[in-house]
Write a protein that binds this DNA or RNA. Sequence first.
DNA 1: CAGTATCCGATGCGATACTG
DNA 2: CAGTATCGCATCGGATACTG
Lengths: 231, 231
Amino acid sequence: MKGYGQFCPIAKASEILTERWTPLILRELICGSTRFNDLRRGVPLMSTALLARRLKSLEEQGVIERRPLPSGRGADYLLTDAGRELEPIVMAMGEWGARWARSRLTEDELDPALLLWDIHRQARPENFPPGRTVIAFEFTDVPAVRRQWWLVSERAEGSVDLCATDPGFEVDLFVSATIRAMTAVWMGERSLEAALAAEDIELAGPSVLCRSFGAWLGLSAFAAVPDRRGA
Amino acid sequence: MKGYGQFCPIAKASEILTERWTPLILRELICGSTRFNDLRRGVPLMSTALLARRLKSLEEQGVIERRPLPSGRGADYLLTDAGRELEPIVMAMGEWGARWARSRLTEDELDPALLLWDIHRQARPENFPPGRTVIAFEFTDVPAVRRQWWLVSERAEGSVDLCATDPGFEVDLFVSATIRAMTAVWMGERSLEAALAAEDIELAGPSVLCRSFGAWLGLSAFAAVPDRRGA
DNA sequence: CAGTATCCGATGCGATACTG
DNA sequence: CAGTATCGCATCGGATACTG
């Protein structure tokens, strides 16, 4: 059986919202991703086949609109009015999760690609110095293939790009950290200052950049939500 | 794979909230049901085995508390603090559903048992006349076994009970209706007046009771939400 | 880059029966 | 009334390969 066989609006909404992965796809759309491969980066453990199926399903349900690109290849996936009204629900789920179901940051949840994808999306170019700024991340405790990442801010273009391979530019700031420490800071579990003091995160570069690191890094949207488990 | 393998609080919340049937179980708890068989009536298409499993799972996740009855048999299922904080999310889902995913009231969604379970729960005893009031429902277009229902208000006890078999009391008000008309009125799709005028709902009894029918019947919590599909 | 096609395995879930 | 126990199927979804 597919649906719930109930006329109740909660049941009807659940038939759409509670399909596996759907809230996470909505999160990606809410955060501003519109292209298939960008969405994919936000749900790396989801197969492309399933993502495509879900997008099609969400389109049929009127939550998103698939707008083919002028080039004829690919498309933008955009929230409809209905989809945009799901934002408060998805965000409320996140807030509830932060309060009552916080991640214990188990091994399998520590993923540099996902973490930096989050960080790069939140990073505000206007907080970076003028011109191009390149920040190199090295995660000391992950396998070589996922160890190094580059964040490239081009203030003129107002863009912050994430690279998994060396873009070749001169690096302005080196960040060396354990994936756990960087994730904990991002999630608001630890302060950046504490992680720096413990040398779980180390910075190398001009002191002006080191000092502004915290400013442009920002934090997860839910970092400020207090943990209430056990309260 | 069970979870989503992401530290994101939306993902963590989704692991709990988006299991099949879970939002509907929460709805029942929010509406005040605490006993296994009451919860069951709210999700009649769910197997008892699965309901039991979900309740256990929700207990482990800290959303509900299972409090065995003093009698030693059975238990009350109560929302914890965490569970109570899910209420705005579940209700927001309902509101979204009422706006953007309204039921078309297809055959399989028209269920007298579920409709009257909703109605009886919403019915406020204080709106009934003093003493005992018995309302008999007859759904003219459903099979004989589910055709007749009795709503018994005992104002002294402040209770409204729902019976699928004749409780034997004298009936004060007879309501005869199609299941579709009664459901449409309950859901706010049609006005009671229109359904009465079209004789899709007919009342028989003292005129004072007939006139107050609409008052104590009430409407679904989402009846007032405007349909925005196609807008 | 932006998906589609196919296959197969796990398991979620519904049905039914049973128990104190 | 308040659940357990068992079983078997369907289907969901993950993996892999492929395409314009």
